[in-house]
């Protein structure tokens, strides 16, 4: 086992363990930080897989954006009553059953139907992936790209509208 494989398993172990930790911890704040650890190690796996652009995007969007927002929201709300926010478990049996079924369906699909073309043909990603992604985004995948942009704009305007102070209607 060379060191690349070792590091891969290391990141994989961290991802799985921290995801399990999210399941078993009661404290929501700790769960958020564990989620961050999990995202981090997924980014590490991307970088190991020679897809550093996607790895950095993972960091930028999930860790740097979404998670910081979550932590921000949690910290602002939990301090109101002075107690840590704690979750409770309900419907354990159904939850475990559904989770197991969903997990096995996903693993079945991934393991048996994915072809792993890259692995078989020994292809590697192009060296200048950024250029490749950029050209494709502006040509072959322009419409999804633009639709995503419009969606984000809508979300931005929506956030501004929601956070606006409503004036009492005076008649």
């Amino acid at each position: 086992m060379n060191w690349m494989t070792t590091i891969f398993y290391f990141f994989g172990a961290i991802t799985v363990l921290s995801a399990l930790g999210i399941l078993f911890t009661r404290n929501v704040l700790h769960a958020t930080f564990l989620l961050m650890l999990s995202f981090f190690s997924v980014a590490g796996i991307y970088v190991l897989g020679n897809a550093s652009f996607i790895g950095v995007t993972q960091l930028l969007i999930y860790v740097g954006g979404i998670l910081i927002l979550m932590v921000f929201g949690l910290m602002l709300t939990t301090k109101l009553n002075g107690k840590a926010l704690v979750t409770e478990n309900h419907n354990r049996l159904i939850g475990v059953l559904l989770g197991t079924v969903f997990f096995s369906i996903l693993s079945y699909i991934i393991i048996f139907s994915a072809n792993f073309e890259m692995l078989k043909s020994n292809k590697t990603l192009p060296e200048n992936a950024v250029e490749f992604i950029g050209i494709n985004l502006m040509s072959n995948y322009l419409i999804p790209f633009e639709i995503a942009a419009i969606l984000l704009l809508v979300a931005l305007i929506g956030a501004a509208v929601i956070s606006e102070k409503r004036k009492e209607k005076q008649e």
Partner: peptide, 11 residues
């Protein structure tokens, strides 16, 4: 990470 240097740094 030379190909994505600035991007990584900002992230």
């Amino acid at each position: 990470l030379t190909q994505n240097g600035v991007y990584f740094l900002l992230a």
